[in-house]
Design a protein around this nucleic acid. Structure first.
Length: 589
RNA sequence: GCGCCUGUGGCUCAAUUGGAUAGAGUACCUGGCUUCGAACCAGGUGGUUAGAGGUUCGAGUCCUCUCGGGCGCACCA
């Protein structure tokens, strides 16, 4: 119907062009908006305002000229010029009732489209380092990424969802060392635990499982472990300290032994993360391991390629990438003076391989603290002659956690954090998914744990689910009242849905597909959440409207069935929307 | 100091991406259950959109400056 109005305006526009009123080289650029209030009709167009300057005609006058050329339409009751020159269209009563039939026949597919069919997107999200359990900060990226994936798929993109596992590099060595030190404690050694080590409880658990399997096999005296190791922070250098411990660990343990500790940590933590995400409804098509890039030689190839195009140089024993030539604020080290490659080295290889894999777009979802990293990745893609514009990095701002009115600490290393699992158990998956996605990703978010716990029933997700359950209940009661639902009868009598709340619901239903498309284009899942709240609100109002008979008390079976059809269509759209958000639609609550 | 994000009723957030009278939830006040579920509905109080300039038919939205908050600024990821 919206397109219909647009077509009419376009016809008028062209007519005015042939009459010479509007220059023929102007683009119409017609945008139709849904009006905010019923006073302004159903649709509004601002073309007269936008074209006023270019045509030299004042907006209201131009609007009149456009309206004069508008072809007749059965669907439109009247056209008005309002305000500074808006063209408002009022639809005839019932013009959109057929949407009920459309929803019911499309079912789960209503709102989905093939708009971007044939386009491929590589979407990477969460990708937290496997050095500990996921915390509530990761949860936001998880909910956002999973929902975005659903949205993208619903409009036709082929989406490859990936978790990039950083299982290579120094952080993992620090993890292995942390586990080993806890293990040594179990062996009876006295260990001053490094400032930079991972201190969470899960480290003890992993150490204990190694101790169970290996007994004292990997045990060495504290003296040897700390032999020649530089002083720890804050007095000394905490980085040099932990590196020294890792060095000793590699000397004292055989490569196989080291690997046993390392693998035990990696495996336990990854499987924990996997299970957590799985329970949270956050799924992947692939878990991609950084180590595979190292083993396949992809990392070395990227470095070589940068070398060939003269983007590398040596300084102070390290190998640097001239990223400052390509928009970064300074050059970056990709091989440290001790020969170890930095994270950037594998990240370059990772993005290069994905772009070479032929995806139309790459989307990375990162925590906002990584924003300074974007220019160097972009620089690397340019240096490799790849199209860096295909890469979009979406930054998710932190969820600041409050507990008892105070900020909760959020550090993996210190081990002081609220895990995603704890949150899910406290407030439930549905509420957590919904709450996370209710805010734009660039919006800083306050997460009050006490509120989420104590007032979980006030969470807006229940409001929406309740509307769904209410429709289900009507259909349950139908049988108890010895009535039957006759869809064909209902669909034949949609014209009886003329009450104001019915019209409001119908209008809302027609808007769903465009909301999905808009939310997807803007990468803003919260728009879907807000739409569903409005829809649920419309339905609750309808349901409670004292001026209307209750649906099941309606004796006219034509009207009753039409209203049942409408209710079912509402239920369908709520279900479709909640599904995209990863939230369940219960039949009773 | 430099860069990115951000500032909207008491609190948490929207605002069709530059549109019309800035809207919801929560909190507070009024009213509504003898069964289609009150986890609901109807109504009310509450705003100089941090501040000052600018751009134009039109600014919460864009530009400049000031002030306040978050996060970065490693041979960590």
């Amino acid at each position: 119907m919206k397109n219909h109005f647009k077509e009419l305006l376009l016809t008028a526009f062209k007519q005015l062009q042939t009459q010479g009123v509007i220059p023929s080289d102007l683009d119409a650029g017609i945008k139709i908006e849904n009006t905010r209030s019923a006073e302004h009709g159903d649709f509004a167009c601002n073309m007269a305002l936008a074209l006023a300057k270019k045509t030299g005609i004042n907006p209201r006058e131009l609007a009149e000229k456009i309206i004069a050329q508008l072809p007749k339409s059965d669907a439109i009751e009247k056209i008005e010029i309002a305000g500074p020159g808006f063209i408002n269209a009022f639809l005839v009563l019932g013009a959109q009732q057929q949407v009920v039939a459309t929803v019911l026949s499309a079912g789960d597919q209503y709102g989905h489209s093939k708009h971007y069919q044939g386009q491929t997107i590589h979407l990477e999200y969460v990708s937290a380092n496997p050095t500990g359990p996921l915390h509530v900060g990761h949860g936001r990226g998880a909910a956002y990424g999973a929902t975005l994936a659903n949205l993208l798929r619903s409009v036709g993109y082929k989406v490859h969802r990936e978790y990039y596992v950083n299982d290579a590099g120094r952080q993992m060595d620090i993890l292995a060392a942390s586990i080993w030190l806890r293990y040594l404690e179990l062996c009876g050694e006295t260990i001053p635990f490094p400032v930079n080590g991972y201190k969470g409880d899960y480290i003890f658990d992993i150490a204990a499982s190694i101790h169970r399997k290996q007994a004292e096999n990997f045990c060495h005296s504290s003296d040897k472990v700390f032999a020649g190791v530089p002083l720890d922070g804050p007095e000394g250098d905490q980085e040099a300290h932990i590196d020294g411990i890792i060095l000793n660990m590699r000397k004292l343990l055989s490569p196989q032994e080291f690997n046993t500790v390392f693998k035990q940590g990696l495996t336990e933590i990854i499987s924990n993360i996997r299970q957590d995400l799985n329970e949270f409804g956050v799924d992947y098509d692939n878990w991609f391991f950084e180590s595979s890039l190292v083993e396949s030689g992809a990392v070395d190839q990227s470095i070589e390629s940068l070398q060939k195009s003269d983007y590398l140089y040596k300084k102070d024993g390290a190998t640097w990438f001239k990223s400052s030539l390509l928009g970064d604020e300074k050059d970056r080290v990709i091989i440290r003076d001790n020969g170890l490659k930095t994270y950037l080295a594998s990240d370059i290889a990772y993005h290069a391989s994905k772009l070479e894999g032929g995806y139309n777009q790459l989307i990375d979802i990162w925590g906002a603290d990584h924003h300074g990293y974007i220019p160097r990745v972009n620089a690397s893609l340019q240096a490799l002659k790849l199209d860096h514009k295909k890469l979009t990095v979406l930054l998710v701002q932190f969820a600041i956690l409050y507990r008892g009115g105070e900020k909760a600490a959020m550090s993996t290393r210190s081990g002081e954090f609220v895990t995603l699992r704890e949150l899910r158990h406290e407030v439930g998956n549905d509420a957590a998914r919904f709450f996370y996605v209710l805010r734009k990703c660039e919006q800083h978010m306050d997460f009050d744990l006490d509120l989420a716990k104590s007032q979980s029933k006030d969470n807006p997700v229940y409001y929406i689910q309740y509307a769904h359950a209410r429709v289900c209940n009507i259909f349950k009661k139908l049988k108890e009242n010895n009535l039957t639902y006759q869809q064909a009868t209902g669909l034949d009598n949609l014209s009886l849905l003329n009450e104001k709340p019915e019209q409001a619901l119908i209008t809302r239903l027609t808007q769903y597909p465009e909301i999905i498309l808009r939310a997807t284009d803007a990468c803003e899942p919260h728009q879907v959440a807000y739409f569903l709240r409005e829809l649920a609100n419309d339905f609750h109002s309808y349901y409670n409207d004292k001026r209307l008979k209750k649906i099941l008390e309606e004796v006219d079976s034509n009207r009753r069935n039409a209203r049942l059809c409408l209710s079912l269509a509402v239920r369908q759209v709520i279900h479709n929307g909640l599904t995209l958000l990863g939230v369940s639609s219960p039949e009773e609550m």
